[in-house]
Write a protein that binds this DNA or RNA. Structure first.
Lengths: 214, 214, 214, 214
DNA sequence: GATGAATGAGTTTTCATTCAT
DNA sequence: GATGAATGAAAACTCATTCAT
């Protein structure tokens, strides 16, 4: 009983923190860092402004924490997705599926994520950018390794640099997700990951045409 | 003489306008919309603040005009690139080349462009987004038509929806350009457009592996 | 037993109060009233903020109490110093010595004291000032009486109003103490009180010069 | 004509600046640095807050400028007072008179001045203090020189260190001025400077008493 | 027509004080 | 009775915009 009293305080604190971050996430993703005031966040989270500052030293710190936490979750999920299956193609399918799911469930987070990885935040903060970019770069490396191993194991042809393949797959999935973000009805993210994968896996060139590339 | 005085005035005005937009472009692309003040722009353009406001109703309007003009140039170039050659593959190659060139020559513009098309600007302004997105969507349709025609003319296999192919090619080139933007040395934008094209044109799957997709 | 329990409580309370005031004194004298927060004081005193407010109604009250208590100690010491010896000159010497000692031992208190008596605190509080000034004025009267009696007893010439003489001696000792406060090494407070006293006691005018004043 | 147009702007600016400083002086001297808000100053000076910030980078800078300007005027006057007459005693008389006059005319300034020189401002700003203290120290040296020269020229007896004499005279005049500041009616600053001077010049000790000092 | 001084609403942040536990 | 989390009023400062010259 007594040994539950301290954790309760902790848990309460964590819950409040989450509420603040949730309010901030929604506002930031909707209006952007500079168009959201600390008062607005406090109000939305239903705390006094002073309380907000008890949890986060300043606006920058709040933003930093928010983005890093979201980014962590995002990358963790994707990293797991390409670790679990043995087969390389299955890894890629898993990756596409996982990305779709996490998007579907966290639209706000995703807006934030793109704002950060796409440099559109114009380095609101020096430090943050680099941390996120590093994480992002690290994941791309992992994805590249999937292609590399696949090539070694003769599952894939060696068409080009594995890192470039990773970048390409990442960007294609992003593009599909953007389409969906803008018009969920007319551009659903494909249920079947092969829909996306085929673009890279099946050569477009009609072999009957006798064309030669490069 | 008199009929020349007005045009001269016009020309002079246009030149001033361009100088203002040029200053704004540089500043916005470097520091982001919210971190640039109207004073800063006026100073850089070497005009008085009041003069800036004679040309643009407010900061938003200035930004809008800037982005639209840049976007126009961008899309005009790309649209021309996929119009000129007859062959579909050549059209795609041309597109990749033209995009690379326009990036190389207008880094500032490009930062702005991505900020806009990627939604990262968090709809700084309601109206702007839609205009640009429309333009962007229109271009993607044109690119999709290239794939569609290619398929009809049996130059390409019908792997998937041509629009999706267009989106994919667009996103892959964007991704390469981002790599270059961040690290021009270690990630040069490929001289040979086929380097990018191959990712989509040549199927990755090693036919010897006996795999079947879908 | 029971009649000891209450006093113990009282004593405990008093001790806590002293600790709070000690922490406050150090902080106020170092950083000034406005640059010290109640949290800071509570932390330094190792009490909770709420406890601080149990002892002192508000920041002003805390400050008031602190200053008054210090001022009491200060004036008590000085008053005693001019009471004990019989001889007037010895009283003055004693005063100079006591003032030096109390300064030496309580630098923090002294900073506070000057801030208050010198009006430099800009009447942080309406009430406080007057109480202190009254006390200060009272002491100056006592000091004036020393001069007055000295004059009556023909120990001193009647040069001017005894109260003015008291003010002068007080201000000269203060000035010496300030010198010492700022540069203890190069401006030590004189060991020998006559060093200070001489300035008033020995006429500066060289009698050989034949000058006549007034 | 034309050469008057620019100066007019300058003059206008200077006038505004003076108005701001005047408002600030009155408020600061009355309520202290921390109890005056920039809004308050702006309002009293009848300018918008933004205008205040056009003239002074921040509150600190405004205060700094205010104090330094006042201090300059103060020291200039006093320095001139001890330069003009030939005779040393006349110099001292002149000093006492000038100090009284400048006090009478600038009560607010004087409060500020004491707050600064007496360290009671608790180094609101690191830099300012030192500048003022230097100026103050410099003047005391000049005053010391008057005593020194007087001693050399046999006008004064060598009772003690000339610097200490200077400090003593300065502090006595300050003390008289404080008396006057608090109760102008009952403690007028003496019309006749000798009233103050006598305290130091005429020895207090009654020579008939046969006392020996030191 | 151009200028830039003046404006003041709006932003971030601090800290004295309260009160539920 | 002690605690310290929560509060929100108030402060410093910025910057888009206006308008008299």
């Amino acid at each position: 009983m007594k040994n539950k009293k301290l954790p309760r305080r902790e848990r309460e604190k964590l819950r409040q923190r989450q509420e603040m971050l949730a309010a901030a996430l929604e506002l930031f993703s909707e209006k952007g860092y500079h168009n959201v005031s600390m008062h607005e966040i406090a109000e939305k989270a239903e705390f006094a402004i002073g309380t907000l500052y008890k949890f986060f030293k300043n606006k920058e710190e709040l933003y930093k924490n928010l983005v890093l936490e979201q980014s962590d979750r995002f990358h963790e999920t994707l990293t797991k997705a390409i670790k679990e299956p043995d087969d390389e193609i299955e890894k890629l399918r898993n990756y596409i599926r996982a990305k779709g799911e996490i998007f579907r469930d966290n639209v706000s987070m995703i807006r934030l994520y793109f704002a950060e990885t796409r440099g559109a935040s114009f380095n609101i903060m020096a430090g943050l950018d680099s941390e996120i970019r590093e994480q992002y770069g690290g994941f791309l490396q992992n994805l590249a390794t999937v292609f590399e191993t696949g090539i070694k194991r003769k599952r894939f042809k060696k068409i080009t640099d594995p890192y470039h393949l990773a970048v390409a797959l990442d960007s294609i999935t992003n593009a599909f997700l953007f389409l969906w973000l803008e018009a969920p009805e007319s551009h659903p993210y494909p249920e079947n990951p092969d829909h996306i994968l085929d673009i890279m896996l099946k050569g477009l060139i009609d072999s009957h045409s006798g064309d030669e590339l490069c």
